[in-house]
Amino acid sequence: MIEISGLTKSYGATTVLDGIDFRVDDAQIAAIVGPSGAGKSTLARCINLLERPTTGTITVDDRELTSLSRRDLRDARRQIGTVFQSASLLRRLTAAQNVALPLRYLGLSDAELRLRVRDLLDRVGMLHRANHYPAQLSGGQRQRIGIARGLALQPSVLLSDEATSGLDPDATRSILDLLTGLRDDLGVTILVITHEMDVVRTVADVVAHLDHGRIVESGAVADVVRRSDSTLSRALLPLPPAPAEDTLRTWRLRYAADAIDPRWLARAGRELGTDIAVLAALVEEAGHEQVGRLTVGVDAGLDDRRVAEAFARQGIRAARATDGDVELDEQAIA
């Protein structure tokens, strides 16, 4: 469990994080997204106290970190595994020696250490590269070694800052499988920082959108994707652009497939006494749910409120599409 409350971080006059409140429950994967410079890495560094928060508290598994002594903090940090951007491996140590580093700090015996390192390398599928130096590994392999090192002390919390950025889709996929495995098998609480919406869509349980040091939107991914009027939901599941029609007014609709009657389109049309034009439509899985998204055209003569209510009665969230919001979609966040 990670609980961040009232977190502010300033460097001199510049405030990088501004009143962050955020909570990640046990065995959940939370994703932090946001534009470059939003403060994502700073947030991660505040959680393991590599940066000392200016104000606010960080609680990890019922232990408040900002008030700990240096010695206690070292101990608390062992509960928090960190996977650094571009792995940050020691160049002069082999993969196995890199993974062993936190265990050596802990003072484990050589025999015990070898056993644990074997296990860890096996878990990330890197046993066959144990004696390779980082320069002899691919980016994806280095990242796996970084994850193995982050897991060495069997932490209850894992922080990952852009662990998949710059990796090809296959490598990304296998790292994400690894993360979900950790959550499901070991109950690890994971915070991933990413600018890839695919990552959020496939592994995250909750998501927060950080912008200029503030969380501007957050929630369970399953809820967020059903919001019809949110930047985050549009970034997560962008719709293809729909052709404009003069006599039609464009609406964006969202629904969870299991919460509606399949005949909703015909029923809404009948209620409004008009034919609804489907301009674009997608059904996708996100946050473990089938989410349908449509862009539809409705007779411009109808009252907006009446249209929205007719859709709402079918369990559909509807919002008027405004000009240009299609382009806004993905780059608004990434």
Binding site: R74, R77, S88, R92
Partner: peptide, 26 residues
């Protein structure tokens, strides 16, 4: 690289351990 010192701190290394295992080695 400064991140390597962060690695040492984040994995629970003492300053003396980080000097020996990271600074002198790298």
């Amino acid at each position: 690289p400064p991140e390597l010192l962060d690695v040492g701190l984040a994995t629970g290394g003492s300053r003396w351990q980080i000097v020996r295992s990271i600074q002198l080695v790298e």
